[in-house]
Nucleic acid binder design. Structure first.
Lengths: 166, 166
DNA sequence: AATTTACGTCAGCCTTGTTGACATTCCAAG
DNA sequence: CTTGGAATGTCAACAAGGCTGACGTAAATT
């Protein structure tokens, strides 16, 4: 057996075909990843954008609009359209910042938390099934590769937001 | 140390927090995943939808419109808008099916293949960097989890299209 | 007092998805 | 040989969720 693709460093996994397979895996898996919450959202007047906002507000209660903006990577006009409906529907509330009164610190209401739970239960169920099927070793690798795939800035967001005022 | 989260099966990786981290990893990583091709596409008159079409036509030369439809999971009207511009710009050509003349078998032109290469070089570069940083073990796990996350139907698409007429 | 920051808003545009309706061509089965 | 269904395209209308640009206000900072 020649050492064509494998080479001396055992780099079979860097083959063009391997990389393309990885690309397609991301594509198809992301579809599965969003499928369950999307189905739920479709029955309401919300979309994936609302889900994202609710998710990150839940994960970082009290974050400011600009922090959320940075996480989501969209324009404030785009985010505002979403936030407005969440306010109007009483899913999210904003508290004026203690130290800086210009800031609006975002929190889920009980109603908002309920929606978050509904969506994230669905999404976590699939995640859990995938994790269980793949095993802890694979999960470790999964997280490692995903992390390496992020933009450095996003990796920082992922690894933990700066301390947020409660 | 209590056996709260870990339990008897060593299921630390199925913790709520672990699952949520996985969800966020998918979100941030997918952004990185699409960032480079997106930047290129923005300089042209194309979007992510064109990229997807070109990618899968390249990977499965001679596939039919309905096959592509099934892979992409969009409506024919949506796909057609994209395909039309690709035809007009001479990136894709359709050959009438040999056995079934209703079918249009899709192929990239040289120009189309050039675009595909441009986009996929960028995307693969990031993939390669992530793979290299994570190592073969992690890559294996990455693929395993992603595969488990797909809808069964999509998993079939992923694992290989049915035999396509050349 | 002047500037900058955080946030909101109006207006308009683009891409990419959706439904629904309808036409054509062709295969396949009765 | 006719007929139903499959494969494809097309017109129209609409929605979600991005974007840019411009403008306004309140509060912090210098």
């Amino acid at each position: 057996m020649a050492e064509n693709a494998i080479g001396s460093e055992g780099l079979l996994f860097l083959t063009d075909e391997q990389l393309r397979k990885g690309i397609e895996a991301m594509f198809f898996a992301y579809r599965g990843f969003t499928a369950d919450p999307d189905r739920i959202l479709d029955t309401m007047d919300y979309g994936r954008a609302h889900h994202r906002a609710v998710h990150f507000i839940n994960r970082n209660p009290g974050l400011t609009v600009s922090q959320l903006l940075a996480i989501l990577g969209v324009t404030k006009q785009s985010l505002n359209r979403v936030l407005r409906t969440l306010f109007e529907d009483g899913l999210v509330e904003a508290k004026v910042g203690r130290t800086d009164k210009r800031e609006r610190r975002l929190h889920l209401t009980e109603k908002g938390a309920a929606l978050e739970r509904l969506l994230s239960d669905a999404q976590r169920a699939r995640m859990r099934a995938a994790y269980r099927a793949a095993g802890p070793q694979a999960v470790q690798g999964f997280r490692t590769v995903l992390e390496a795939m992020m933009d450095p800035e996003m990796r920082r967001q992922y690894q933990g937001l700066k301390e947020t005022e409660a």
